[in-house]
Nucleic acid binder design. Structure first.
Lengths: 220, 220
DNA sequence: ATTATAAGCGAACATCCGTTCGGTGTCAAA
DNA sequence: TTTGACACCGAACGGATGTTCGCTTATAAT
């Protein structure tokens, strides 16, 4: 609006950057007094005043009565160049001849040797995801390579056309295919369009292990 | 060692998980009393006692005299999923019939419409990376699907056996293949082991566009 | 000239929080 | 049986921290 207004925004931006840098450096948010000290403000009430405005503007959220109860909103963090990281546990291997490891209901990140770290922006809903490393080239018709990592979401069922890991009871085999329920039978369509589908006449032979959310190939 | 010892470790693991979950949920670390309340421990000194042990074991670091001054160490944070986020610019499409868009020498994230956010831990050296979206199924012999995203590192040359995006001068075509320099000729090996290599007798026909670092497929 | 608003100061208060201290029960080694 | 460690309890101290209140100053609008 005018010089006055611009300086307000500048001050509040300084506070935001101060919060961001503090978290980046120390791993936890600053106190009101930390911010005051950093910006040369001599009264804590001034910082509190600006924090209220930043909260109203949805830049930050505060937990009342909690020390250091400041967190950047998703929008605020995004605006400052921060994102959210999701750790997906790498639970084991997937191979054609074996059932895939199904996550135990209470699995936690501790006790898991390896994790795959992804950003929330490419992974979507991060709940209950797990990762498997593909062994062998048996899934080449799904265009999945030896060593690729598939990110899975456990589900007992999938909708028509979704890519899923299925255990074929009679063949004793795991494959990754798109699943189409066609009346009494099931069509399993490879992702590779040059290859032909598999038809299973008895739907009970098809055990859905989970949904494939993403495939990651780290070259070399 | 014995049951006694195992319970200690269990308790300390509970505390670690508590810290992790608290940070995950609230965005800042818990106080000693938060942990005590969460785990049903009635004395803050017990928590302090265990925190000292976790600090000695390099699971956490503490800032003395600072409230909520707990942070997970790099090793501990890896299990939690705290890492560094890399923004890779999505510069355009890659298709068989066209040269791939080469990044301008001073390209920055400004002016780029879309970015792919990855963690440093899966991407390695984040410098000069860029991303391309694959259009069409022309790269099926590299097991790369329509819609896949390839992460590239620009290089004028590659070592033997590295996966690269190459522009074939005579065919006027871009492909992704492993490149082997075999004396006077070049062997371009598809990633799909069931497919045959291409041989190019004149190495000058092979223009290296960049190295493929990663392939990402978001299913649906 | 008056009023309103935005930004800040300094002090004070009640609570929160890290830390310390003395003490208890259990278990295994000596 | 004694000893020592380990895990824990309850209380207390002092400093840290969020929050409120009254006051001041500068600028813009009325």
């Amino acid at each position: 609006m005018n010089r006055q207004r611009e300086e307000v925004e500048a001050q509040e931006r300084r506070i935001l950057e101060c919060i961001r840098d503090f978290i980046q450096e120390r791993g936890y948010p600053p106190t009101v007094r930390d911010i005051a000290r950093e910006l040369g403000i001599s009264s804590t009430s001034v910082v509190d005043y600006h924090l209220r405005r930043l909260e109203q503007a949805r830049w930050i959220e505060r937990d009342p009565r909690s020390s250091r109860g400041i967190r950047l909103t998703v929008a605020g963090a995004r605006g400052l160049g921060l994102g959210e990281i999701i750790s997906v546990p790498l639970l084991g291997d997937i191979a054609a001849g074996e059932p895939i490891p199904v996550p135990s209901s209470d699995f936690s990140l501790l006790g898991v040797e390896e994790t795959i770290e992804l950003t929330r922006s490419i992974v979507g809903d991060p709940q209950n995801l797990y990762a498997l490393r593909v062994r062998g080239n048996s899934m080449i018709d799904a265009m999945i390579h030896d060593g690729d990592i598939v990110i899975m979401r456990p589900t007992p069922s999938v909708e028509n056309g979704e890519m899923a890991a299925v255990w074929l009871e009679d063949r004793e085999e795991t494959t990754l295919k798109r699943v189409y329920w066609e009346g009494g039978r099931v069509r399993l369509q490879p992702a590779n369009p040059t290859m032909s589908p598999i038809y299973v006449d008895d739907p009970r032979q098809v055990k859905i292990q989970g949904k494939v959310v993403m495939v990651i190939r780290q070259v070399r």
